[in-house]
Design a protein around this nucleic acid. Structure first.
Lengths: 281, 281
DNA sequence: CGTCTGCTTGATCAGGGTCAACTCAGGTGG
DNA sequence: CCACCTGAGTTGACCCTGATCAAGCAGACG
């Protein structure tokens, strides 16, 4: 509760001291250092695993403070992470040291999955607030899947879910205007806060304009200007990191200003193709 | 070898007639209708599965002709697809009927993975040439993983690989200039052709400028102009769908025209962060 | 032979990037 | 307590990249 050093305690996260491992003393439960499989499933929003040994699968928690790195690019991969509380970002670093934000993991999100392929993390994860993370050794993860088929399926589901999210991201970056991107970003944040039990109408951004811009493929100035514009129109209220959602429906339906002709052509093309496909089938 | 009908036989695909299933007669091998697990692993570039029953895991091939849809958005999911030969595109359709190209699957690529999450395909796959696809019932896929641990790991690897690919895509769309995107697209095509045993120096595009543009978040005019520009500079030669790679290294290193200051600042910021992280660790 | 689709090229324009100045909040140190 | 510093955010002026609109061409096909 007391802020010890350089504090950036924006989140309501419990502030524990650092625990390298805690492994030297078996498994103790001071505070909340371990989670069982049921809690994991709940967090990940997947069906719970039935009849398993309570004590068999326990997963360690680790705390990170604002600004700390969870893993870096190239680091050997062996564990996945689930966010129990707090906010993070995952970033790619290009050859010039430029950051590209890929996601903003928060409660219930899993990250580190990109490490499976090459046995090395392909991205870097950084805490945007004090965080409580659950460590999932990848070996144990798959091992559970082997003995509990429902869980195995869930693992695939979680990975597929992540893939779909990225697809939506690509689609957004490829097709939407700056205003539409920012609008969608706010809507998705609002929805995620609602899922986590927070207010969907009033919340604090945990990331800078620069990070939002990087995530959305925009500059920080454009993000700032767009937020200001939304504010003036009355869609939201903005005061630094604090965002108030005034008209979520308007944000949700806000899109690129109609490039009319493209639509019509695409629609025609599609109906024709559908016809020919049906004919040849 | 003879061109029968409306030929778009740009690929070296064997031209078979349509087979609804062929299942009525057990498993026959006229031409090449079934693949065993070893062939699957080889295609997917994953380690082969040892000692399994040859006849136990056989996977059906299906042929599609240019323009045919393999699956559509919302269709019930139950099988994954592996490309044995031919070229395809996967697309998202927005609320106005606009297409957003997500990928161009070719030999050795798997698609349909986005269906796992919701039990419905989230994208649409269309054949850009005559194709020979291998059907992998998802149930059987996971079942193999259960009895052959190496294979299970490979499944995760393939999904993770796909995720990393999408991340790279997001990064590209978010940060690179039009020329850089087109250049990288050509490089990656060249490399994939090389992997498939074709020439990396001279190949035919299987997709339209419009599709390339959609994939790269550009208009077809910009794609066309950029290719012309590369042609004039002597990086490539272009004649409609035919592309000759002249200077792959130049294409590979081509990037956004230096926004100088950003780099420097980012570099400084990074080195500072690294320092403070080391101090607090 | 006419049509259609894909491709190229030109002219124009605007969305958003770039550069710059200024404000504000929080932390630091005298 | 105040001066100072730093990093985040806002806003304005300007300009460039790439989208839009338009015209023309070539190959495929009925």
């Amino acid at each position: 509760m007391t802020l010890l050093q350089h504090s950036d305690l924006s989140s309501g996260t419990n502030q524990l001291n650092e625990i390298g491992t805690g492994s030297e003393s078996g498994w103790l439960r001071q505070g909340k250092l371990w989670s069982n499989l049921t809690e994991i499933c709940e967090l990940l929003r997947i069906p719970p695993v039935s009849n398993y040994d309570e004590e068999e699968f326990l997963f360690q928690h680790v705390q990170f403070k604002t600004g700390q790195r969870i893993h870096t690019i190239g680091q050997a991969f062996d564990t996945l992470f689930i966010v129990h509380s707090g906010f993070l970002k995952t970033v790619l670093i290009d050859e010039f040291g430029n950051e590209q934000v890929l996601s903003f993991p928060m409660k219930g999100d899993m990250f580190g999955v990109d490490g499976i392929h090459t046995k090395r993390y392909m991205s870097e994860a950084v805490a945007l607030s004090n965080c409580d993370l659950i460590l999932i050794p990848f070996k144990k993860f798959t091992q559970i899947g082997r003995s509990h088929i429902e869980f195995e399926h869930s693992v695939y589901t979680v990975m597929s879910r992540e893939l779909v999210r990225e697809q939506a991201m690509v689609s957004m970056l490829g097709a939407l205007s700056a205003e539409a991107r920012v609008a969608r970003f706010l809507v998705s944040l609002s929805e995620r806060f609602a899922e986590m039990g927070y207010s969907s109408k009033l919340f604090n951004l945990r990331m800078t304009r620069h990070e939002i811009g990087s995530y959305l493929g925009l500059t920080l100035e454009t993000v700032s200007r767009t937020l200001s514009a939304f504010n003036e129109i009355g869609l939201i209220s903005v005061d630094q990191r604090s965002i108030g959602i005034k008209d979520i429906d308007a944000l949700r339906t806000l899109r690129r200003l109609p490039p009319s002709s493209v639509r019509a052509k695409a629609a025609i093309r599609r109906s024709k193709l559908a016809g020919s496909a049906a004919a040849s089938a």
